[in-house]
Structures are given as C-alpha cells and as structure tokens.
Amino acid sequence: MQGSVILRLPLIVGLLSLLAACASGPRAGGLPVVDDPAPIVAGTMRPYQVRGRWYRPEEQPRYDERGLASWYGDQHHGRPTATGERFDMNALTAAHKTLPLPGLVEVTNLANGQRVIVRINDRGPFVDGRIIDLSRAAADSLGLRGSGVGEVRVRYLGPAPRLGGGSRLQQASLERPADGPAAPDAFWIQAGAFSDREAARRVADRLGEQATVADGDRLYRVLVGPWPDPNAAEQARQAVIARGYADALLISSR
C-alpha cells in the first residue's frame, strides 16, 4: 500500500500542468455550465423593504459568504416564489435576499463538508445572521434538516437554467479505471465538471490514465485517482489549490 502511494505521488506534477486546460470553456472546480440561462426577473432587482430594513439586489459575481442557513417546507409548498415559480419543497431551491433571480449558488455545510447546488428563486430569509433559506430537499442533502439551522458557505455561480439546475455534488457514481476496481476506501480529486460528456472525456484523456468520467445529475465530472491513502490525496489536492484551483474537491468512494 505504501509503495503504491509513493508511485502515484510523482504523477501530481504532471497533473498540475494539465489541469490548467480545465479553466477554458466550462468553469473549473466542479461548477456547472448553463448554456441557456433564464432571464433575470426584472422586478426582483428593485430595492425593497422588509420590517423597516432596505435590501438592494444587485449582480454579485464574486459573492462568497459564510453565515447561517435555515430551511422552509410544508407551510410554503406550492406557493409562488419571487420569480413567479411555485415553491417545491422537494426540489433543490433556496431563497436569498439580494442575489439575482433566478440564479445558482453552491452551498457547503461547514460542519460536514456536504455540498449542493441550488436554484435561488425567492427572497429571504429576513432574520439577522441568516444568509440563505433552503428548501427541505436542500436541507436534507446538506444534513441540516434535523438541526434546523447550520453554518454554511454560499458561493454565487451565475444565472440559473430555464428549468432546474440543482444537483447534489457528492453523490456521483464513480466509473472505475480500466485497470480494475478501486479499493473500497479509495480517494479521488474532482478536477472539473461539464455539461457535455465529450468535453469531459477530452479533459480526462488529457489528464492521463488516472482520470475518469463520472456521470452525475446533469453533469459529467472528471475525477483523478484513486489514492488509497487520504493523506496522499490531500497533498495532491493542496498542490492543485496552490496552482489556483481553490475548489479542487477530495471525494471518497465509500
């Protein structure tokens, strides 16, 4: 086991130079590509007042905040959202006070590392310290429903597609490399995600024999590995981050 880890580590240097190719076209770091974005609902971009406080929605391409997330469900199910869409507590959606609607955000539960992409189509939550209000399904995906409130990181990804856009980022089914099955406790690095399978396959081919393509929910993820030792995999991930890919993701196959 130790020997196999040592043999894989020199490949990190080669991977770093090839990962730069992921930055063109689809966005790097496992982010989705929206080819047919829904138009921003103009009325949702006007300043508005709730409980005596003014909120001013605006384009925020660099939005990346940490704060508390809450969730809402049965009492709002089926009601219209700020965009005019019907709230579906079983869909991966959320409410935000100032980001463009509809849009996509990546939400990370800072307690367990679970990540999900949600479609923001409503305004809220209007409680101090809370930065996003999740649907029941999104809260379930992040492991937050039981606690009701949890600390999260929210990153704006851009416009939402005309329909849907939500995805659970850590539930992809892994394709095994051609040289045989991975160990039960194998660890992978997610190098990027693409809406087109052929684009993902081309990147995987450039990354070499340790790269494979995993079919996810509307996305094809390029995974590199496996590493049987999480410490070696983390070293590889940190090397990728040092080269400017701050969203490189370590995934366990278990």
Rank of each mutant, 00 (worst) to 15 (best):
7 L>P: 07
11 L>Q: 13
14 G>E: 13
16 L>F: 05
17 S>H: 15
23 A>D: 14
24 S>F: 11
24 S>H: 14
25 G>P: 02
26 P>R: 04
27 R>Q: 15
33 V>R: 12
35 D>H: 15
36 D>E: 13
43 G>F: 02
51 R>Y: 13
55 Y>L: 05
57 P>E: 08
62 R>F: 14
63 Y>I: 05
66 R>W: 09
71 W>K: 04
72 Y>V: 02
76 H>Q: 11
78 G>C: 04
85 E>R: 00
88 D>F: 03
90 N>M: 15
104 L>T: 01
105 V>D: 00
115 R>L: 07
128 D>V: 10
134 L>A: 01
135 S>F: 05
136 R>C: 08
140 D>Q: 12
141 S>Q: 13
143 G>S: 09
149 V>M: 07
158 G>K: 04
160 A>I: 02
162 R>E: 08
162 R>L: 06
163 L>H: 15
174 L>S: 02
179 D>M: 10
182 A>W: 07
183 A>E: 10
184 P>K: 09
186 A>V: 01
189 I>S: 02
189 I>W: 01
189 I>H: 00
191 A>H: 06
193 A>C: 07
199 A>L: 11
200 A>L: 04
205 D>H: 13
209 E>K: 14
218 R>I: 04
222 V>R: 00
223 L>K: 01
226 P>N: 08
230 P>L: 07
232 A>F: 01
233 A>T: 05
234 E>A: 13
235 Q>G: 11
242 A>W: 12
